[in-house]
Design a protein around this nucleic acid. Structure first.
Lengths: 138, 138
DNA sequence: TATTGTTATACTCTATAACTATA
DNA sequence: TATAGTTATAGAGTATAACAATA
């Protein structure tokens, strides 16, 4: 039980640390966490607003503002859907794609620095354990 | 390298998952993530506003509103500091302490469910690896 | 009628800059 | 002068409820 407590505390602290890394990377790229997350979700996708809300797990009304701000910065654009004049798909602009790639590389670089102290075998075991944890809710 | 990418992606996804768990626990207790974090930091401490800002890594001005909202909910209180009439310490009320304990227990319970698939040995190895990662910035 | 997306409104959280009171 | 805390202001992000246009 004492061991269980240590593990859950470790998970929460790790989560805060990773979140801090993401925020540092955001600051580096003049972005904001919410915008970065939007770009990440849009990588390789072009969802409608309602679908995007489901992907981000927020309300439709919240997505409107999120996309508004990203569009104002030239990172995404709304595209009409032929055959349904109510709907709008959202897609990355070239600038959005570049920003997302640079941001992703920066986060990876910072996280590598964080996990650099682990041996190759330990990294592999660790990644497998994380995979097993993430598989729980699926 | 391919392995490195997998590890950093795993870390980011794990972080989002843990964050989601914290938010679910918040919803359960009618709290908000910011308030929950404030209560957690105040557990066993009674810092002045400036010190609290450092603990939370936000600006002093942001702490004012954070504490205002928590005080309005009866979770914390400001206490005068004898000998310095400018300063104010912040401390948990009984309700704040109860809320914090219940919240912490709920997060632990939810995270246990998440890590339940790991064997005892794997849990131990995992916690040790996390400890090694967290030790990097210290 | 149902669905898509937006608008209106309100709240939390954050930052910067200017301010007050005290040291 | 310097420090502790607050206020003023602005912006991001979230939710709920009501709305318009389209299906």
């Amino acid at each position: 039980m004492g061991e269980g407590l240590a593990l859950t505390d470790a998970l929460v602290q790790l989560s805060f640390r990773v979140q801090a890394v993401v925020e540092q990377a955001c600051a580096e790229h003049g972005a904001l966490p919410g915008q970065a997350r939007l770009l990440g979700v849009l990588e390789g996708r072009s969802p409608a607003m309602t679908e995007l809300a489901a992907l981000l797990d927020v309300e439709r009304a919240s997505v409107t503002g999120l996309v508004d701000r990203a569009e104002r910065r030239g990172l995404v654009r709304r595209v009409a859907v032929p055959g349904d004049r109510r709907a709008a798909r959202v897609e990355l602009t070239d600038k959005g794609r570049e920003t997302e790639a640079a941001f992703r590389a920066d986060v990876a670089r910072r996280l590598e620095a964080l996990t650099g102290g682990l041996s190759a075998a330990e990294r592999e075991r660790f990644a497998r354990s994380v995979g097993r944890i993430l598989a729980v809710g699926d």
